[in-house]
Amino acid sequence: MSQPDALTADAILDASGLNCPEPVMMLHNKVRDLVAGGVLKVIATDPSTRRDIPKFCMFLGHELLDQQEQAGTYLYWIRKKTEG
């Protein structure tokens, strides 16, 4: 995993206060609008995102660059897969 402070996000999705399945549904829409290879930072408070977001990335071929937990907030950096 790279240093999160060094990761620059092209877009941010703040799903704080939302519960499953809303964060992943919002993530799906946000990733669709992101350019290929772009980085999305996700902020969530639902613990189920620890399971759901890595599965989402694996299933759809996106790269989970890093994930952190800070005082009940879950942070994810996702690189959208390049087309092809």
Rank of each mutant, 00 (worst) to 15 (best):
Gln3Lys: 15
Gln3Cys: 13
Pro4Asp: 10
Pro4Ile: 12
Asp5Val: 10
Leu7Ala: 09
Leu7Arg: 03
Leu7Gly: 03
Leu7Cys: 05
Thr8His: 11
Ala9Trp: 01
Asp10Asn: 06
Ala11Arg: 03
Ala11Pro: 04
Leu13Arg: 02
Leu13Thr: 02
Asp14Ile: 04
Ala15Asp: 07
Ser16Asn: 12
Ser16Leu: 11
Gly17Pro: 13
Gly17Leu: 06
Gly17Met: 08
Leu18Lys: 10
Asn19Lys: 14
Cys20Pro: 05
Cys20Met: 13
Pro21Thr: 14
Glu22Ile: 13
Glu22Val: 08
Pro23Ala: 08
Pro23Phe: 07
Pro23Ser: 12
Pro23Gly: 08
Val24Phe: 09
Met25Arg: 10
Leu27Asn: 06
His28Gly: 03
Asn29Cys: 06
Val31Cys: 11
Asp33Ala: 14
Leu34Pro: 00
Leu34Ala: 02
Val35Met: 11
Ala36Phe: 08
Gly37Arg: 10
Gly38Glu: 02
Gly38His: 07
Val39Ile: 15
Leu40Thr: 03
Val42Asn: 00
Ile43Pro: 01
Ile43Gln: 01
Ile43Arg: 04
Ala44Ile: 03
Ala44His: 00
Ala44Asn: 04
Thr45Gln: 05
Asp46Phe: 12
Asp46Lys: 07
Pro47Thr: 11
Thr49Val: 15
Arg50Ser: 07
Arg51Cys: 07
Arg51Gly: 06
Asp52Ala: 12
Ile53Ser: 05
Ile53Phe: 08
Cys57Pro: 12
Cys57Val: 09
Cys57Ala: 10
Met58Ala: 13
Met58Lys: 09
Phe59Cys: 11
Leu60Phe: 14
Leu60Met: 06
Gly61Asp: 06
His62Ile: 11
Glu63Asn: 04
Glu63Gln: 10
Glu63Ala: 09
Glu63Ile: 02
Leu64Pro: 01
Leu64Asp: 03
Leu65Gly: 05
Leu65Lys: 03
Asp66Trp: 08
Gln68Pro: 00
Gln68Asp: 13
Glu69Gln: 14
Gln70Asp: 10
Gln70Ala: 10
Ala71Pro: 02
Gly72Pro: 09
Gly72Leu: 13
Thr73Asn: 04
Thr73Ala: 12
Tyr74Gln: 08
Tyr76Arg: 05
Tyr76Val: 04
Trp77Met: 07
Trp77Ser: 02
Ile78Asp: 00
Arg79Gln: 15
Lys81Arg: 11
Glu83Pro: 07
Gly84Asn: 09
Gly84His: 04
